[in-house]
């Protein structure tokens, strides 16, 4: 087990270094970082001094090492447009994005799994066919269109829910601001999390359906029938459990992409999160923020991958055995 974890950790580290390298290349060569920091009227000597101070004259390998070392300490420099440390900017906006992503993930799993199970078990029922049709539409409609549609319906026409922002937030401790504790905060969460979660929901539904149909065809399900087990026990005891094992992997990875997809939802709903920050950075070529965001998403994916692998091993006894002996 330890060997397995160690090997996975090493792989993850490799991925992170590769991502850091790309981030470094962006930072160093896409636009001159010094030119971004100084004005047109800054004297040449001043520019040279800054260049020396930032270590841009050092050998490239030293620069890479320094960049990675800084990244490991979550230091990504100063944003060109805000003139503030990137880490501080991201940290301020992280709670908004994470809360939104969490609620969307719960929504997509809580709705997607039952819908998938239902469409697999009652394949020919009218409701299952309706779910299938909805899922196809859900995959085909771009996220931003869904957001616009929901805003028009529930905010503009009906006026039930806010169309932008987080509502009232409460500060918890030093840095975390939460919208989960006020009514307006919760109301503000509804539309964005549905928008963000809908695509993942349909994806999970289709995945659960396909996987469940596959499992229902296996010998051990036939054997369970031959043993006279109740249909409920076969479907929900045997088939569902075996279905959910591979679903864990995908669902876990989906959680990662939810955070990245939040860019779109945050734009539609003017949600003050990291995604909106990143988009503004792309629009104004604010490389430090882009590099930091890239590294953060990379880090997140690596962590989620690792957790998913371990979870998988916990659920599947076969894998537990092979990992245990490895």
């Amino acid at each position: 087990m330890t060997a397995f974890i160690l090997r996975r950790l090493l792989q993850s580290l490799g991925v992170l270094i590769a991502v850091a390298l790309i981030a470094f290349l962006m930072f160093r060569f896409v636009g001159d970082p010094v030119n971004q920091m100084v004005g047109i009227d800054t004297p040449q000597a001043e520019v040279a001094r800054l260049r020396q101070e930032l270590g841009l004259n050092d050998p490239i390998l030293v620069q890479i090492a320094r960049f990675i070392a800084n990244a490991a300490r979550f230091e990504f420099g100063i944003s060109y447009q805000f003139r503030l440390p990137v880490t501080q900017l991201l940290a301020e906006r992280a709670p908004a994005t994470l809360e939104l992503a969490l609620v969307s993930a719960i929504f997509s799993l809580a709705v997607g799994i039952p819908m998938g199970v239902y469409t697999a078990l009652r394949r020919d029922s009218a409701l299952a066919k309706a779910f299938q049709a909805v899922s196809l539409i859900g995959v085909s409609l771009p996220t931003f269109l869904i957001g616009i549609l929901l805003i028009y319906l529930f905010a503009v026409t009906l006026g039930w829910l806010p169309s932008f922002g987080r509502g009232q937030v409460v500060r918890l401790g030093s840095g975390w601001s939460t919208g989960l504790l006020t009514v307006s905060g919760l109301k503000a969460l509804i539309l964005p999390s549905i928008t963000l979660g809908l695509f993942q929901m349909t994806l999970i539904m289709r995945l659960v359906r396909a996987e469940m149909l596959e499992v229902l065809r296996t010998d051990y399900i036939k054997f369970a029938r031959a043993r006279g087990l109740k249909t409920r026990a076969i479907h929900f005891g045997h088939a569902l459990k075996n279905t959910l094992v591979p679903v864990i992997t995908i669902a876990g990875l989906q959680l990662g992409s939810i955070i990245a997809f939040a860019i779109i939802t945050e734009t539609v709903f003017q949600w003050p999160g990291m995604g909106l920050l990143f988009l503004k950075a792309v629009q104004s070529v604010d490389i430090p923020i882009m590099a930091a965001y890239l590294m953060m998403i990379g880090f997140l994916f690596v962590v989620i991958n690792l957790v998913v692998d371990l979870l998988y091993a916990l659920v599947d006894p076969r894998l537990r055995a092979t990992i245990g002996s490895a």
Binding site: T218, A226, P317
Partner: peptide, 14 residues
């Protein structure tokens, strides 16, 4: 009672 061909796949692995 019924016995299937392949004991590898007849039992639920989980």
């Amino acid at each position: 009672g019924m016995i299937f061909q392949d004991p590898l796949t007849s039992l639920n692995p989980l």
